[in-house]
């Protein structure tokens, strides 16, 4: 079956103001709204559109994390994914561990394409897609803003520092999404009801034979240095004078 695997991560919602705990042991997540990582929503939307155009027959969403992550998997199923896989893992999972899990799932599911967000907005690591592509020895097309499938290959436009780069990658391949790839659909109420009946399987790291290694130990968290609020000037002339005084003009 022509299948697309989409990775999603449960993260603190985009709109939440992040606060570091006073003891530096993490950021405040109690009672905070959690959502699907926005880049992963874009990844799922792209997979659904490819399926709707006839380019794939099944979209499978995957997450690695604690039991709470099933909420986000249900949301993904409501968006239109056909089934979900939850790999249970507690604590901070490192990108290399996530990529190893994804590799095991790729071996089981034999997808045509794996689509992931380019980064998660919590850790901002931006590694999983490239790691998976390396471990799988397959192409990667990161920061995608356009994806077209042609027999056996994908033509991907990427947002790079210099502009827009286009690559052809043979399938199967890993694609990571940038912001302008698409606008994810809203979930409708009847779809939420339907999503409850879709299959959601739970797996464990040990069943997949992946060791939850810790090679990156989080030592402490601290708030960023704050900039001081400056002065207000009343017009363009004052602004220019102030810049000259600072030696900036």
């Amino acid at each position: 079956m022509k299948r697309i695997l989409v990775g999603i991560k449960r993260v603190v919602d985009y709109n939440v103001r992040i606060r570091v705990k006073p003891d530096g042991s993490g950021v405040v997540t109690d009672g905070v709204k959690m959502s699907i990582n926005p880049f992963d929503e874009i990844a799922l939307e792209e997979a659904l559109r490819i399926k709707e155009r006839g380019g794939a027959e099944e979209v499978v969403v995957v997450t690695v994390g604690p039991a709470d992550c099933q909420q986000q998997l249900r949301t993904a199923l409501a968006m239109g994914a056909d089934r979900a896989l939850h790999v249970q893992a507690d604590g901070g999972i490192e990108p290399l561990v996530t990529a190893r899990v994804m590799l095991k799932l790729v071996e089981r599911e034999q997808p045509l394409l794996v689509i992931l967000g380019k980064q998660a907005i919590d850790d901002d690591n931006g590694q999983t897609g490239q790691l998976l592509a390396a471990l799988w020895n397959r192409p990667q097309a990161t920061y995608a803003s356009k994806v077209e499938l042609h027999d056996g290959a994908a033509r991907v436009t990427r947002e790079v520092d210099a502009g827009l780069e286009t690559l052809d990658v043979d399938l199967p391949a890993v694609i990571t999404t940038d912001l302008r790839l698409n606008e994810p659909r809203y979930v409708k109420l009847p779809d939420i009801m339907k999503a409850k009946k879709k299959p959601l399987d739970t797996l464990t790291l040990s069943a997949l034979g992946v060791e939850p290694r810790v090679q990156l130990k989080a030592v402490s968290w601290s708030p960023p240095a704050q900039r001081q609020k400056g002065v207000l000037v009343k017009d363009a002339a004052e602004l220019v004078a102030a810049l000259k005084q600072k030696g900036l003009l």
Binding site: E94, P95, L96, A99, D124, N125, G126, Q127, G129, Q130, L131, L132, A133, A134, L135, Q140, T142, Y143, R158, E159, V160, D161, Q215, L216
Partner: peptide
């Protein structure tokens, strides 16, 4: 940590099975 480096270094990390510290 440019698009060049972010795209490449994590792939190197995967090939070497060595952890990456981003940014």
């Amino acid at each position: 940590s440019t698009t060049f480096g972010k795209d490449l270094m994590a792939r190197i990390s995967g090939l070497l099975d060595a952890p990456q510290v981003s940014d």
